[in-house]
Design a protein around this nucleic acid. Structure first.
Length: 291
DNA sequence: CACCACCCCTGGACGC
DNA sequence: TGCGTCCAGGGGTGGT
């Protein structure tokens, strides 16, 4: 379940592996996963890999941009020449025989590779997404990507200002947790980090957004940045099958509340409560997080 | 307009 | 061991 730290880790590892490389052609194995012309990056050298919230953009040197959203189960892997690829890549029709022969084979060893960007020199970038909650959106120019997708998002969680967050919260009666999960309010937070954030500042997840004052919004932003930064420094959180673009696991496991319902709060030792807020499993401390 | 329930999808955990 | 069932959850959509 990649959230901002995991997506930023993918951005960095992918960037190191592919910036400056030429995309020779694009294999798309599931049309419904891609919106727009999948081959749009073909013939362009990768100039930069950007991120806004949980979305990535691979940008070509002539301006083409491909937006990738990993959803729940998506991975984006940079496969270097001579390196084993993703499970299942061996089963792809029409793939590079050399690349295929190097990949693990076996009966249904995990296919679900939907798009492969082939690079000059034999490498590749592969988008795999078993549950298909993610997707790929191709544009002939980055400006169009920004207008069509990123304009609707709030400021990135790493750069949002206290004033910006306060503005996003004060107009809503929704639970503050629901608002923080809303990518139009702030982009990049998901269920894990919202629970961690609310616990860190001692705020009840069901507080109405509009009741969060300017000082509390500042507290949220001041807690958010180090929380996300520490997770990025650790390469993100590994739950289930998250991997960065180089196939590495995250090492951030310092969850204080997520997944710990019923266990003692690390701050006050009270049993953490588990409930549903905004349709999401929510864990919080009834004692530390007043509301 | 704001908000919520529902749906999409598959793999892993768990119970019998 | 094997099978069935439930659950995870971001975001889009359609209903209230």
């Amino acid at each position: 379940m990649p959230e901002l730290p995991e997506v930023e880790t993918v951005r960095r590892t992918l960037s190191e592996a592919v910036v400056g490389q030429m995309v020779t052609h694009v294999d798309c194995f599931r049309e419904d996963v891609v919106r727009g012309e999948a081959a749009t990056l073909a013939g362009q050298r990768i100039a930069v890999v950007l991120r806004h919230g949980k979305q990535l953009a691979i940008v070509g040197d002539r301006g083409a941009a491909v937006c990738i959203h990993l959803g729940m189960s998506g991975t984006l892997r940079a496969i270097r020449e001579g390196e084993p690829g993703l499970p299942g890549l061996s089963e792809l029709p029409g793939g590079d025989p050399d690349l295929r022969s190097r990949t693990r084979s076996g009966p249904a060893s995990g296919d679900h590779v939907h798009v492969v960007w082939r690079l000059e020199g034999g490498g590749a970038v592969a988008f795999r997404d078993p549950r298909r909650f993610g997707g790929v959106w191709a544009f002939d120019h980055l400006d169009k990507l920004r207008a069509a997708r990123w304009a609707a998002l709030g400021d990135d969680a790493l750069t949002i200002t206290p004033g910006g967050l306060h503005k996003g919260l004060r107009g809503t009666k929704r639970a503050v947790k629901a608002a923080l999960l809303d990518q139009a309010v702030v982009a990049g937070l998901g269920n894990i980090y919202v629970d961690e954030l609310l616990h860190a500042v001692g705020m009840h997840p069901c507080r109405a957004g509009a009741t969060v004052g300017a000082a509390e919004a500042r507290g949220l932003v001041r807690a958010m940045r180090p929380l996300l930064s520490r997770a990025i420094a650790a390469g993100g959180t590994t739950l289930r099958d998250y991997r960065d673009a180089a196939g590495g696991r995250g090492r951030f496991e310092a969850h204080r509340v997520y997944g710990r319902g019923g266990q003692p709060c690390h701050t006050c030792a009270a049993a953490l409560k588990s409930t549903i807020v905004a349709g999401r499993t929510t864990t919080f401390c009834g004692a530390c997080q007043a509301g």
